[in-house]
Design a protein around this nucleic acid. Sequence first.
DNA 1: ATAATTATCTGACTTTAGTCAGATAAATGC
DNA 2: GCATTTATCTGACTAAAGTCAGATAATTAT
Lengths: 302, 302
Amino acid sequence: MDRYIDHIRRFNRAITLRMGTLDDSFLNLGRPFGEARLLYEIGPDGAEIRDLRARMGLDSGYVSRLLRALERQGLIETTPSESDGRVRVARLTAAGRAVYADVDRAGDTFAHDVLAPLKAEERERLVSAMDEVEKLMRGFAVRIGPEPAGGADAQTCLKDYFNEIAARFDDGFDPAVGLATGIDDMTPPKGLFLMARLDGKPVGCGAILAEPGGVAHLRRMWVAPEVRGIGLGRRLLEALEGEAAKLGLETIRLETNKALTEAQGMYRRAGYTEVAPFNDEHYADHWFEKRIDHHVAPASPV
Amino acid sequence: MDRYIDHIRRFNRAITLRMGTLDDSFLNLGRPFGEARLLYEIGPDGAEIRDLRARMGLDSGYVSRLLRALERQGLIETTPSESDGRVRVARLTAAGRAVYADVDRAGDTFAHDVLAPLKAEERERLVSAMDEVEKLMRGFAVRIGPEPAGGADAQTCLKDYFNEIAARFDDGFDPAVGLATGIDDMTPPKGLFLMARLDGKPVGCGAILAEPGGVAHLRRMWVAPEVRGIGLGRRLLEALEGEAAKLGLETIRLETNKALTEAQGMYRRAGYTEVAPFNDEHYADHWFEKRIDHHVAPASPV
DNA sequence: ATAATTATCTGACTTTAGTCAGATAAATGC
DNA sequence: GCATTTATCTGACTAAAGTCAGATAATTAT
């Protein structure tokens, strides 16, 4: 483990130094770093101010002042949102888009400078190593936590999940045919909805429903295709088991379709055993069950 | 090329987000970032102030003030250097070492968190991909430029070079036996000394001596072992040729030992042809020469 | 309909980061 | 031995970054 840690620390040190030159180019546009960053975050499609605030983790007064400065320079304009009169939407003007393009170009220049001293074969190796690092570091950046099942992102996740199983199940999927699971079933006290986010973007979900007899019924577990293969399914499952344990439940069970072979493998590896059908879910071919272990600490902090 | 650029930009974006959490931990020690960084740079072994200034690229007044602040907090103490009364050396006190350990731990924690969600085989892949990225990005960070041949770093470089060839040449190496090349020979107007630096650390050197008949005599070219295999030799050679061209010289020539096979390969690939001996350098087995092309732009900006 | 909440803004601050122009003392060049 | 250079320090700045306490208007909850 120590050997790995040394490698990672060396990498961090080197990369921080390299990225420093990128930050400099951000600064060398003759504009304060904060302004440039905000302008870049607004982006060509515009953004809601509350969203910017959340994404960048900044004080509302500070953001407001930065926006006013950008407005004075004629780089952005703000208009009230159509759906909610309190929120304002910031959008780049033509001049703002020009500055955005400059900032964007700084990234290109950096990439170009990195590639410049390399031969074709080395470039190939560099980008594939970068992809590997990025992919393997994704797992660390994923944050799992309870969220309202009725939220917009939760609904998007569930929709993506439905679309995927509709494509994979032999006979498609229609939520109206399957066992109903409403938003309130996945909301305390009846249940709980967990979401996994990568840099704020939803990349997975899962729910447990508290049922009579100390049973946690696991449903709607899904991992986005772009983050598969990094153990996120296992972590989500552990997190759901941890939540079930916190609720004092004793057994966790679930049903799954025969098309989802990799999911079945994961359940078995996680200690689930196949049991006789415990419900009549139309789309289910296999039923699994596991005793919840209350003696072991719940999943590592997520 | 565009494909590569996209990969690099994606990598930058992802890594910047990940590293953000590392910077935060730097900050969350309840101390200004600049102070924490300086303290960390001083390190457990202490450092000369002029060195800190050069390494971090900061104003002397600013560094002085930061040091005073750290001193007031009882984290460091400064003493004049033994060898040069103008230079001061900063050293951590016991309290300072404790804070250093905290900052250091933040790096460990980060590394640990990155590794936590990975399986053994994935950890292996992550660190080797990191090493690959780090190595291939080194080339971009190397800066080549003229420096005084008499400077401390230049002398260190030359000493490393002498040690290496002493070990590799069949009959060792003694500078007193070889053709003399003094500091002033490598100093304008008689010649020029180039040094390659990676993050400020010297990693290569080379000199040209202006000789009668429009000849640039190339000597003392060396690349540190830790940065070999990334095309630095070729870049140094190009930079030296560029300097020779700027001086209006017409021919570049050099001699080399038979033990340095990879150097000979590089010279040939760069368009040098083997010629009859043009001097009686004791350690030389091969002599090379190349016409300097004044029509082509000098090497890409270094 | 009224109260509580949410999103944004403004004014009045503080802290951090960084620059610039000397002053001083030690070392070096000639 | 005297002029120059080098390393550091201090004082006097400025700009950027960020915080905090309200004020206001729109929306949601009851």
